[in-house]
């Protein structure tokens, strides 16, 4: 029986791992993909106090090493379901099931897809959700990026330094914010903005060949030949496997509070998967801290209760 099972090895999950490990708890950290989560996409972390120009990759590696030092079990398995019993809880994965006293859900968020035909088929064959991961393969080529948030702008700027041409496609008429990167992007000769326009089709068999664009309120469509399409239209929470037990809001974020508790005692939540307004690296680490400390407290309280009986 584990003391704490942490689902997800992004910054919040790994921070929870550090605190649980230091508290000498028996901990299992589950991750279904590469550890680090979304921070892996950051080419350079500029907003974490005390960190100076560290890449997301290096940061994730440091965190991982820190967790490993603490003798925590780390398994690359995908959590499929959590169950709550009287005296313990259980996590079912794609390979095993594990009993535990507490659970910290830190499953984060995944990339939002356009939801178009051929999108899944062409991932890694011209379609990407991570400019810093895959941008180098499009050196001197023509690419498009779709999205209107800060990530899309930062990624477009990154790509404009590598690619021959970058089309920035956004469904609204103008961006809703200003930033240094946006004003730098506007100065680039090889960047073309296509506003008020949606991508309605993706073409290609073995690799991406073109996308079909439609301007709002206009019937005609245009076909744009490109080598790469980067999709940066936000994220959706990864909580569907907990829906049977854990309450979420209408978007799928787990309902919680500053103590990182959920509707089930002994199950905590941390990071981007938690219902909140600010999702940053700093707040993810903060959640991981709080969830781990409260999980430890819960275990101690249960021990006391058992003694009374």
């Amino acid at each position: 029986m584990y003391d704490i099972i942490i689902i997800g090895a992004g910054p919040s999950g790994m921070t929870a791992g550090i605190y649980s490990g230091i508290a000498r708890k028996k901990v299992l950290l589950l991750e279904k993909e590469a550890y680090g989560g979304q921070i892996l996409k950051a080419s350079c972390i500029k907003n974490y106090p005390g960190l100076d120009n560290v890449s997301g990759i290096d940061y994730a590696q440091k965190l991982y090493n820190q967790v490993k030092e603490l003798n925590i079990d780390i398994k690359f398995e995908s959590a499929l379901e959590v169950k709550n019993y009287d005296k313990f809880k259980e996590v079912i994965t794609n390979k095993n099931s594990y009993k535990t006293k507490t659970i910290i859900i830190a499953s984060g968020a995944k990339n939002r897809k356009l939801g178009l035909n051929n999108e899944d088929k062409l991932i890694g064959k011209g379609i990407s959700y991570c400019a810093t991961c895959d941008g180098m393969f499009f050196k001197d080529k023509k690419v498009a990026i779709t999205g209107g948030g800060r990530t899309a702008i930062d990624d477009a700027l990154y790509l404009s330094n590598i690619c021959k041409k970058v089309y920035v496609i956004y469904r609204q008429k103008e961006f809703k914010f200003d930033s240094i990167n946006l004003s730098n992007l506007r100065k680039k000769d090889n960047v073309e903005f296509i506003f008020n326009t949606n991508i309605i089709d993706i073409n290609g068999n073995e690799k991406l060949e073109s996308i079909v664009l439609k301007e709002n309120d206009i019937d005609d469509t245009t076909t744009l030949k490109i080598d790469g399409l980067f999709i940066a239209i936000g994220h959706i929470p990864v909580s569907e496997m907990f829906n049977n037990l854990i309450k979420t809001d209408e978007k799928g974020y787990i309902i919680s509070n500053e103590e990182c508790t959920t509707n089930i005692e002994g199950i905590f939540v941390a990071g981007d998967i938690r219902e909140k307004n600010v999702r940053q690296l700093t707040t993810a680490c903060s959640d991981g801290t709080i969830a781990a400390i409260n999980a430890c407290k819960y275990i101690e309280n249960e021990k006391q209760t058992d003694k009374c009986i």
Binding site: G56, Q61, M136
Partner: peptide
């Protein structure tokens, strides 16, 4: 693989 690819380093 490449140096700048985090998951590659993990792999």
């Amino acid at each position: 693989w490449a140096d700048w690819c985090g998951p590659c380093k993990m792999f």
